[in-house]
Design a binder for these strands. Structure first.
Lengths: 262, 262
DNA sequence: CTGAAAAATGAAAGAAACAATCAAAATAGA
DNA sequence: TCTATTTTGATTGTTTCTTTCATTTTTCAG
């Protein structure tokens, strides 16, 4: 018997219909005690699908949904600093592309701060990520465009041949890309082939390319390379990487930007 | 002086950076009492930008953010019924288009239920709405495609010439469209011109068109018409509309589906 | 089928957070 | 400067949350 899993699934289905469920509702829905409902809620929150709130539980809807739980919390501060630094490279009049990913989301948030403070007369922002889109506030001055296509639920982004096709008519002044790993030999890599392919295409359409890299990325190998070290003009990192990377950057003329303090 | 508004803005900025703030954090961030922090949180929740949770406050991230507050709650049950009925018209193998809007979101949720229960061997779903995308679970059998383009924050959807261009290569077996208003004379209308234009184009690329209409829509005029009454093959409505619409539907051979009970 | 180990459940006690109320302080306008 | 209004902080009582433990149910080896 798996009463427990059945309940979890039933609760999740119900959640998707009504958005939220109170403690009392769940109690007489399943006819179980308050303590068990709480445990059920905790399990569902643990899984990342929902969030407990004061008197019950609610669907987790966006950025908080998947990535939040614990792992992100730690390096988020570093990524926020990287994001702010990257956002400082954006200038009025630019057409820019933002990759998908948690670091790039932090950049989108920082960029939106600058937008709010009126830093840009004109700006066109392109991205393939729903999280980025949700973080940005479009206006007459700032146009925000999503490149659609086939949806990937885990990363909440779009990639594939459709997306690459949508890229076709555009040319970017700057592109800001993430990576799942970087090695001196392979360069910038993604764990998802379709993202790799997309990023490679973005690079060809950009005048200047920035890589946003939190420290954990350096030296980590990933599935598929989309650019050699020299393919990026600028690296924005938290602390500096080790010597082998510094040498490689120097050899290819890649600029490295790290944070003094902020 | 406007300490209060300043704090509200500062809190909101901080929220956008960190996603959430606890009661204690806010207390020594602004150096104010617990009661005042609670009032501050309440105000921000009232405005719809954030949601209070157990020990503090979090960003409101998606569907719950803007439209939910109160107005939706009322007619949601009716829209959910309409959505379920509409979802029952989808068959395995279909390529379908889903319009943006609260009624269509309910259909997406109902459709996802059917997807979960394994009702479809193959299905391709196209939409221009982030809410719909977030409600659907892509898989090998079920492909989910978003038509991107210029982002509209209020409706969380995409429209404009880019979006219309992305439509070009596709042909839909069925399309499911909403409306801001329907009149016998003007037909199906939207309050946003770009949505109207998009829907008109979707109609030309669809074999069979369904209109999802909650009762409030009948007789209400809206900015721009995208189809005459006869342009839709099927109407899915909550309760039936009045006689003039029934006559118009009969004259144009449009089928009307209402709910016996569900 | 039986009995022990593991898991799930319900109840209870203490801790934390919440809403409501009221008086003091700060602010704005005459 | 004085008064009316708004904002704030403290208090009280209620609700919800977490933790702990005993009981029940389930699982699985013998």
């Amino acid at each position: 018997m798996q009463k427990k899993l059945d309940r979890e699934e039933a609760l999740f289905r119900r959640l998707r219909q009504t958005g939220s469920i109170s403690l009392g509702e769940a109690m007489n829905l399943f006819d179980i005690s308050e303590a068990t409902v709480r445990r059920l809620f905790s399990a569902l929150e643990e899984s990342g699908a929902a969030l407990r709130c004061y008197g019950g539980i609610r669907l987790a809807t966006s950025s908080e949904g998947y990535s939040f739980p614990k792992r992100e919390q730690e390096s988020r501060e570093e990524k926020a600093r990287i994001g702010r630094l990257a956002a400082s490279f954006v200038e009025s009049g630019d057409a820019i592309y933002l990759d998908s990913g948690t670091t790039l989301l932090q950049m989108a948030l920082a960029l939106n701060e600058r937008i709010f403070s009126g830093a840009f007369q004109a700006l066109r922002i392109f991205t393939n990520s729903i999280a980025n889109i949700s973080a940005l506030t479009p206006s007459l001055q700032v146009r925000v465009v999503l490149l659609g296509g086939e949806y990937c639920m885990e990363r909440r982004d779009f990639s594939g041949s459709l997306t690459e096709g949508y890229l076709e008519p555009f040319h970017f002044d700057k592109c800001f890309l993430g990576a799942d790993g970087v090695t001196v030999a392979a360069g910038f890599c993604s764990d998802q082939a379709s993202i790799s392919s997309l990023n490679a295409r973005v690079l060809r359409r950009s005048d200047r390319a920035f890589a946003l890299l939190s420290n954990e990325k350096f030296g980590r190998p990933a599935l598929m390379s989309y650019a050699k070290i020299g393919g990026m003009q600028d690296i924005i990192a938290g602390n500096g990487p080790d010597q082998s990377f510094l040498d490689a950057f120097q050899a290819s003329g890649t600029r490295l930007h790290t944070m003094a303090q902020q």
